[in-house]
């Protein structure tokens, strides 16, 4: 029966097509995700002489950066400290505001105001860092200079302040999502017990959402460590170990952005910048990966408290 055979051939043809499509999709997904590893390996390769000749510990703990001096000194301790200080300070300022705003949005904001605030938060995340940095430098730094009679108002504190404003929207969005993902049963039970809305929010919802809210903080921390433009324009760019929040410093991203263009490829200076980049990306990834593992466990275990 010739007709049946035609159908059979047609079907196997289709299966073949399906197989091609699905293997293209799987291959693209795998290859493009592996790009991250390729990036890390490439940066490791470019910076290899630093690790093999100078050594991890003296690179990380050396406080002086004179890659062009003789003998050249490359230590990035002061940049690491600046990075952590700026990001930690930003988190210190952003956390209370961000959490309060998230709780407000999730529980207390009148619907109309919430409908305005949510897109506002979204739009704030879309404003580029160079605009925040520019406004911070043009307005905030000027204000410090006039108010406290300083020669130059740049400091780690100024950078932290602007970074805080930049990461607040991230903290708000992610914490609100965490608060909203608390199962409704808790809310119903609390309402049935006649608990006040504030008690419900602070004593029931926040503790239940705390993992997600911590995740939001870690995300914000990673983001402020890796942020370039704002710190470049605000932190003062001085290669000295910062001794206070109000000192100047040069976080790792600013170092890379400022010096990369002027290096000779293959020189120690060039390699040292890649080594600094590797340190930065590993710092950020440690924080983010930790949080991803935490959130993955949270998803798997359902809402375990």
């Amino acid at each position: 029966m010739p007709k049946k055979r035609v159908i059979a051939i047609d079907r196997s043809n289709k299966e073949w097509k399906e197989k091609i499509i699905s293997s293209i999709i799987i291959a693209t997904a795998t290859v493009s995700s592996l790009l991250l590893l390729a990036m890390l390996l490439f940066i490791l390769k470019e910076s290899w002489p630093v690790w093999s000749q100078i050594g991890i510990s003296s690179f990380l703990s050396g406080a002086s950066w004179r890659p062009l001096g003789s003998p050249p000194q490359i230590g990035i301790l002061s940049m690491i400290v600046s990075t952590l200080w700026v990001a930690g300070g930003a988190l210190l300022i952003a956390t209370p505001l961000g959490f309060a705003c998230a709780i407000f949005l999730a529980e207390f904001a009148p619907p109309l105001l919430a409908a305005v605030l949510r897109p506002v938060v979204n739009i704030l995340t879309g404003i580029p860092s160079v605009v925040y940095g520019f406004l911070g430098a043009a307005v905030l730094v000027k204000f410090f200079e006039v108010k406290f009679d300083l020669a130059s108002g740049e400091s780690l504190f100024a950078a932290s302040l602007i970074l805080a404003i930049m990461v607040i929207p991230f903290i708000v969005t992610n914490s609100e999502a965490a608060l909203r993902s608390v199962p409704l049963e808790y809310r119903y039970a609390a309402m049935a017990l006649g608990v006040s809305r504030q008690h419900l929010a602070m004593k029931i919802l926040v503790p239940l959402a705390r993992k997600g809210m911590l995740g939001a903080l870690a995300l914000a921390f990673g983001r402020s460590m890796g942020e370039t433009m704002a710190v470049l324009m605000l932190a003062g760019n001085i290669l000295r170990l910062p001794m206070s929040w109000f000192a100047k410093g040069e976080p790792l991203p600013a170092l890379i952005a400022l010096e990369l263009g002027s290096t000779t490829p293959g020189s120690l200076h060039y390699q040292a910048l890649f080594a600094a980049g590797l340190v930065l990306v590993l710092m950020v990834m440690t924080v983010n990966l930790g949080i991803n593992i935490l959130l993955y466990r949270l998803q798997k275990g359902g809402h375990t408290i």
Partner: peptide
Amino acid sequence: MAGVPSIITGL
């Protein structure tokens, strides 16, 4: 990858 700082991509 979403968390990798943009300066590292540039590098």
